[in-house]
Design a protein around this nucleic acid. Sequence first.
DNA 1: CTGAAAGCGCTAACAC
DNA 2: GTGTTAGCGCTTTCAG
Lengths: 364, 364
Amino acid sequence: MIEGMKNNITSIDVARLAQVSQSAVSRTFTPGASVAEATRAKVLEAALRLNYRPNAHARSLITGKSRIIGLVLSYLENLFYPAALQRLSERLQKDGYHVLLFINQTSNADDLVTEILQYHVDGIILAATTLSSDLARSCADANIPVVLFNRVMGNSGSNNLQSVSSVRSDNLAGGKEIANFLVKSGHKRIAYIAGNEESSTNLERERGFREGLADHGAHIWGRATGNYEFAQARLATLELFKPGHEHPDAIFVASDHMAFSVMDTLRYELGLRIPEDVSVVGFDNVPQAEWGAYELTTFNQPLDEMVEATASLLQERLSDQEKSAGKSIVIAGNLIVRKSVKIILEKIDQKVLVKPKLKPKVKT
Amino acid sequence: MIEGMKNNITSIDVARLAQVSQSAVSRTFTPGASVAEATRAKVLEAALRLNYRPNAHARSLITGKSRIIGLVLSYLENLFYPAALQRLSERLQKDGYHVLLFINQTSNADDLVTEILQYHVDGIILAATTLSSDLARSCADANIPVVLFNRVMGNSGSNNLQSVSSVRSDNLAGGKEIANFLVKSGHKRIAYIAGNEESSTNLERERGFREGLADHGAHIWGRATGNYEFAQARLATLELFKPGHEHPDAIFVASDHMAFSVMDTLRYELGLRIPEDVSVVGFDNVPQAEWGAYELTTFNQPLDEMVEATASLLQERLSDQEKSAGKSIVIAGNLIVRKSVKIILEKIDQKVLVKPKLKPKVKT
DNA sequence: CTGAAAGCGCTAACAC
DNA sequence: GTGTTAGCGCTTTCAG
């Protein structure tokens, strides 16, 4: 039997076995430190024999860096977040960072801050739908870089928050493009199902949508709120489709996750066909959006680019505290057209659009 | 302006301000330590003024406990895992633990171990589909409690692995119950779409399924493998429904996640109706299973109980290293009947079932 | 109940 | 390139 006892091998043990000083061991495990190849080899061999790994806590105590990033999330049922989580974690791991996870459904901001700060994380990524501003401020006060993922700072406590950075997709342009698409494809009674009313994502998407509609002299025909949750989106749909009233011919739903709920409600509770009776557009482009059951037309948030931007931003902030503080990165998205929107061609030519000059295609 | 400088307040600073010793500060922040109420109050006030929080790394260095649990996951697109992650994290947080996340798609076992072990986590939860045995052994060697979530140890390296605990639902019984249900509801050509062939979940589910079928003198009519992935499940379906051949009248799919893919393929590529033309049963009971588009009959893995069991097990192991080492907890699940299975009543009486004595219901 | 002193495992200066 | 020394911030004996 190999001795299975407490495996508390320290750098001193390794040093002893390798017949070098403790510092030599340390340097061997510090990328970029200067050790002779021979020394390094001796250390490595001893370390291997003893099954030694440096103690990250001791290291972080002296260096002041933990190589841990705190990641705050709240609602994982919307696949956008697991997907982001996975990519973020992998990207950070590549840089030698690890993710300490905080799921924040119930707990309040103050407790969370206390917990996060104890671990002296090097940075924080906030992807929680709520409570951004409180938490963000506390962290900024504690002088640790915070980057908001998929949201921006509210205007509630905008005192010393210039330091908080953010990465998000172009929600405004997205809302606009969707409005444009819906009008051009001939829809007349266009409704909006909102996400969380206070969230920056919802605010921006709705504003863009309104502006896009206005560009065509149109406006939101009906509106209900789903608060980014599945069950509430169903209720919102029912509200918009009260029996005996005229109903929307298109709905822009503020997230794919809610859009699925809306589509299910439309089809299986209200007996409506998509897109023949109602068109539906989502936002996010989560994996499910292309599933056969939905084929949802939606605005793609380019996750990889958002993750990359987040990681780089964090990196910058980590190396130079002041430099990119408060930087706000907006990633362009793009409309993904699938089958959940009806294209009413005849209407396009007759009413909505300025008649385009028909360029006859010449075959070569 | 408040001074936004490096906020490195230590217990010494607090001690000084509160006019007590450093130990007094420490004791104030150590649950269950003996401090006079007056001292405690002074310390707390000073701490508040200075915005002090104990440094978790320093603490863990001396106590030997990090209050961090390493959680290893691999495939978040299957909602079962985000859901588990969320509950696990919340449950652990309640006990004062935090989750250090390791997403393991690409990286190999050894690297992962090295990384995890550096943080001297107090325990590890392995919910990754692959690589269990390697990783589990390394950790067991390093003497840190490992609990397998939703899987058990393979028999590959069963040397000193008695120490690895596991929590899972009763996959065997689940497979059996599904077989029984499918046969009794009158299906004749019952197929199986497998998950990852090496995973314990797949092995157990399939074995239970076979046994259940055998109880009725039936057997698996067709089989293909989807490896727990969405795209592969589609391919598996296509394979099972080659044109020109007779096709299954029921499919048991080893996970809900794959079942959605199967249903989409059946409906939108093959033009078949569910359950009229084919019945589909899944496994897991993820949130999507009850969505209107699927209404999937499936075997429920009771997540909350599994999480609770995992947390308690970990707790036990943490307090008494030897006690519950190697304990394996199996949680009973239950079949959730929705609309994806056709009940062919006439067949039940005529062929499959031993004709039951009809107990006429007496109305009182 | 409280304080002084020692030390967890490591890295960063500093001399050599 | 290498070893010696000091000390990161905390908890924990041990006296008092």
